[in-house]
Design a protein around this nucleic acid. Structure first.
Lengths: 241, 241, 241, 241
DNA sequence: TATGAATGAGGGTTCATTCAT
DNA sequence: CATGAATGAACCCTCATTCAT
């Protein structure tokens, strides 16, 4: 009755097999195996879910938006929920690509942190990313594993990234941090301080201005450097605690 | 589709009008004017929305839980959405009552901050409050004003509270903060660092232990005091920046 | 989630309570409690199921035929299947009413048997009754209890009736039967011999003629009386038993 | 909706056309002309229809069970309904093979009848045969010709067989029957008396025991011999069995 | 020719809302 | 005024059939 198939596509190289000519569309793929169609469905679903949220979005809407028939959706995904999960999986994969691209390691510690922070906050508080987070949070009761994995591949990865960066900075002598993991947590929250929750609750209707973001990030970095910066930023921290 | 009647109840003082005699149970109230019944509906709705979320909750469920008829609900509220909005309004009002009660002003700055932080984090990351936040965030796209007001009466008020407290501490010479508003933002995010988002995304399925909360709050206060504490916590901060 | 209510209506006398005047439609009935509406739904369902069979009949068809909305059907019955079961229950109840009415006890044994047999065969092989049997048999795999109860209230009751009649005849000395239960079985099959299965399989497209029925019943009674009749109908049987 | 092509396959002799050489496996057959594939489809369909009934069986199920593609099924048959009809045709052909094999003509009349009756009842009330009958009866409204032909090749043939046998017995002086056709009808109904309908309606969930069948058949033969047996059977029934 | 991916009408069921009582 | 039976649009999903490959 229920279907169990559809094992992770990962078939991105299937198309190559067909030779060297006229291979624009693969001739024959297993049911639910055409990556282009899958992409097409996910893209439509993404738009609809983003616009309406999970519950308010109907499969018919997705059908219309994706330009595929209802049946096709059910060939590629076992239902609305699984479609949503797959979408989240896909989305998470691409989410931090931009962020990664933004990181530069050549800058001095402080400037690099500011740059990183600005990128992070800009991304995370951007309208599409905020909407995505709202939707996932909204269904987290019913689909906790979706929420959990979203967190793991999203915020958690962001923090891991930041920790790595901090480790580098510590190694380079730009920072002096006993526990970089904790510090990464603290810094990433400080970056978002006062913006993130407002955005999540729609208390800040527009994306924050670059100015606001910059200001917030700099305040965070200031605070951070007072605590963890090299000696010239702090004296005698060593004797307490 | 939408209806126009029933201009904002604002019914809190309506009952008094009936005079000074035999007013124990008002004999005749305008449609949707009995505050007890209104309370009863909201209470049922609260339980159902908390259990199922907004979309999954059906008006019938609420009807059953509240012990009123469907028609009655539509007399008091223009629909499910409006009922939800009213509920949020009510809920927010009571949400921080516990928190307020927890604040004591007699403690030394540092201990008071820790105590406040523990209360704040315990409340905000508790299962019911997290569920409430999830639901509100989940519908924030469709009902931004609900989200916004939830934020205003929730987190914002918490931060205002914290700012007040910091102002007191600064005045008492326990802290040295140039911008207490910003500091309040920063501190409250630091309190929740690494816990809040995990809870929201269901990446932390259980309420955080008292231990974990304490540890997190203390780390936050430590960091905070390095930056903003009185001289004995920091030396030579004056010459930089 | 699922509904459990609707305990056997049997409320045919509910209407009487409301007094003696203007009682055409009961004022207020519980959900799914209005016998008139229930009847209306069952009547529509009966027509549709009879026309299309169980699977081919759609709830929409029933909706249309019964003149009620789809929601109403689901208030009175928990689904298509339960509606069908209720219909069977109702149907069985009325099925043998006609037959009962046809029985007369004043006739001589042989004529009475013939008359009874003709009534039985006429009823059982009539188009509506055959169609009903086909449908029930067709779903007997999925709904065995429906089939079983149909059998119990239908054929089984018919046979019980026949046994009673035979007992009377034996008591009156018109027949001499050692095991009236077995004899009832045998006689009722003989009545239907060669007709019933043809009808069931649609190998006999029209209802059998009165003539054919009479012929068949008389042949059955003849055979029966040779075996079980009083002395004058059989030869040489006298010395045994 | 309906299609007009594919005029009655009648493909049993088509293969011969290819000539006299190397025809072991025909290289090229017209669409829907390979009898092996046809057989394969029918076999899969048989299993699925038997398991699920007509309406509940999906073409996909048959596809899976038969190991052929959906398109192929539609090449060989014009649709689910036609496939079912073809299946019935095939099935009927093989249905009474077992029965035929069971008949022995060497026995004395009475014993032979009992043996025949037991075989008949065992077959007809067996689970697979009952299921097949239920399915055919269930769709007899929609496909009367299917039902009719099922009857003709099933029960009717059984009765013809019985008539033949009775004719033989009459010729041999073992029985004395004026109308063997009528008698065959009567006897075969008596064999099944009280079992068949219970089985059909699922009022008897298990196949009847050999004992019960034997008892029923003997009672039928007893009754039959009282009426139609030679003189010696009508007297002194007591001494046999 | 055989294939099975795609189609989309239609399946049973739910539910926010209305309105006669 | 409160009630809850009735509504029917919309829900998610299935499936017989088609047709490009």
């Amino acid at each position: 009755m229920t279907r169990e198939n559809k094992a992770e596509p990962g078939l991105s190289d299937k198309a190559e097999e067909c030779g060297e000519v006229a291979c624009l569309r693969p001739q024959r793929l297993g049911a639910g195996q055409d990556p282009a169609k899958r992409k097409q469905i996910l893209e439509g679903a993404r738009r609809v879910f983003m616009r309406m949220g999970f519950d308010a979005a109907s499969v018919n809407d997705i059908t219309r938006e994706a330009g595929v028939s209802k049946g096709t959706i059910y060939v590629y995904f076992n239902g609305k929920e699984e479609l949503f999960e797959a979408l989240c999986e896909d989305y998470r994969a691409s989410m931090f690509a931009d962020l990664m691209a933004d990181i530069e390691h050549g800058l001095s510690g402080r400037d690099a942190l500011v740059k990183f922070g600005v990128s992070l906050v800009t991304l995370i508080t951007s309208e599409p990313v905020i909407r995505a987070q709202r939707i996932v949070i909204g269904v987290a009761d019913r689909m906790p594993e979706v929420g959990a994995r979203f967190y793991e591949r999203g915020p958690k990865r962001g923090k891991a990234l930041l920790k790595e960066f901090l480790d580098e900075q510590v190694a380079a002598g730009h920072l002096d941090i006993p526990d970089t993991e904790l510090a990464a947590h603290q810094l990433s929250e400080l970056f978002l301080a006062g913006i993130y929750r407002q955005r999540l609750f729609a208390a800040m209707p527009e994306e924050p201005s670059a100015e606001l973001i910059r200001k917030n990030v700099i305040a965070a970095v200031d605070l951070f450097f007072i605590a963890y910066g090299p000696r010239r930023y702090q004296n005698g921290k060593s004797e307490d605690k």
